[in-house]
């Protein structure tokens, strides 16, 4: 019976597996394959071995994009995970207006990235932007600048927006984890005198640690591939100061028509992502806490 079940489960998995191979595995292999060719749209590629890779690693623009990708990754992590957890915790503890704030924090998630980009481009505007107006109003007029048009501030400006965009998602994930904790655990803790910060540290945090791990992996893999907001806000500029791997790949593939080279960039992104994801999973390998 059990064995039959395994056969049947295999049979039922086959259509999904076939689809997965067709739309994920094969294209991925084709991209890796194309990275070893000089290939433009409509042309048959010529095999160049690892030439695209050596050229890429010698290109300062690529090294900038790689560095910026890591800045984005760390920035997103610093913003999204702590804020996501704090918001979730505040809502979970039912401080005033939690339903309202739950909706407000989640709004960026349902907005299109392009809408967010337009919105924040206005916020960062040199002349009438909210940020500069605010700075002027509190007497910090010296700090005003064209936030997206200055290469010293463009990257950090877009990183903040990317962080802001996804805080709501991580808030929701943490909130779901918090709500899964049986109420009796909190009651028992309170009887034992663990309240406030002590309770948060010894009871709540350890019980959502798995969710935290999941979130870290999601943030990391998302950041390495991140593209749309950055492209819509700065196109990686000025002077490549906010470029990331994905925007670099877009320029090479679709503006310069070098699909093979872009394939090499994509391959690097895949490898970076795999190393980070597998590495993080190793670090995180720990028995999950059993819920009573």
């Amino acid at each position: 019976m059990i064995r039959n079940l395994r056969i049947w489960s295999l049979i039922f998995l086959l259509p999904g597996l076939a689809l997965f191979i067709y739309i994920v595995v094969l294209p991925t292999i084709q991209v890796i394959n194309s990275s070893m060719y000089n290939w433009s749209p409509g042309q048959v590629g010529t095999f160049v071995g690892l030439n695209n890779f050596t050229q890429m690693f010698a290109d300062p623009s690529f090294r900038d994009a790689l560095l910026h990708t890591f800045v984005l990754l760390i920035g997103a992590m610093i913003i999204q995970i702590p804020l996501g957890f704090i918001f979730a915790y505040l809502i979970f503890r039912r401080y005033i207006g939690s339903a309202f704030f739950q909706t407000v924090f989640f709004i960026p998630m349902v907005l299109s990235s392009v809408v967010i980009a337009l919105l924040w481009t206005q916020v960062y505007n040199q002349d009438f932007g909210l940020l500069n107006s605010l700075l002027r109003a509190v007497g910090l007029g010296d700090l005003t600048r064209p936030w997206l048009g200055d290469s010293s501030s463009s990257l950090i400006s877009v990183v903040v927006v990317v962080g802001w965009q996804y805080v709501g998602l991580y808030m929701l994930i943490f909130l779901a984890a918090l709500q899964r904790i049986p109420h009796s655990i909190f009651e028992a803790a309170e009887i034992d005198g663990a309240v406030g910060v002590r309770q948060l540290k010894s009871i709540t945090a350890p019980l959502v640690i798995d969710t935290l791990k999941l979130s870290v992996i999601l943030v990391v893999t998302g950041a390495v591939q991140y593209f749309n907001l950055i492209w819509a806000m700065t196109q990686g500029g000025p002077a490549n100061s906010s470029s990331v791997l994905a925007s670099y790949m877009f320029i090479k593939g679709l503006q310069e028509s070098r699909l093979g080279y872009a394939g090499a960039v994509a391959t690097v992104m895949l490898v970076v992502n795999l190393i980070l994801a597998i590495g993080l999973q190793r670090v995180f390998r720990r028995e999950p806490l059993e819920l009573g």
């Binding site: 191979i21 595995v25 094969l26 292999i29 084709q30 394959n33 194309s34 060719y37 290939w39 433009s40 749209p41 409509g42 042309q43 048959v44 590629g45 010529t46 095999f47 699909l259 093979g260 394939g263």
Partner: peptide, 17 residues
């Protein structure tokens, strides 16, 4: 085999032009 077929003699873009 499937993967091999996908890759076989595969200069990208061979089907167009």
């Amino acid at each position: 085999t499937l993967l091999a077929v996908a890759l076989a003699g595969c200069a990208p873009g061979a089907s167009t032009g």
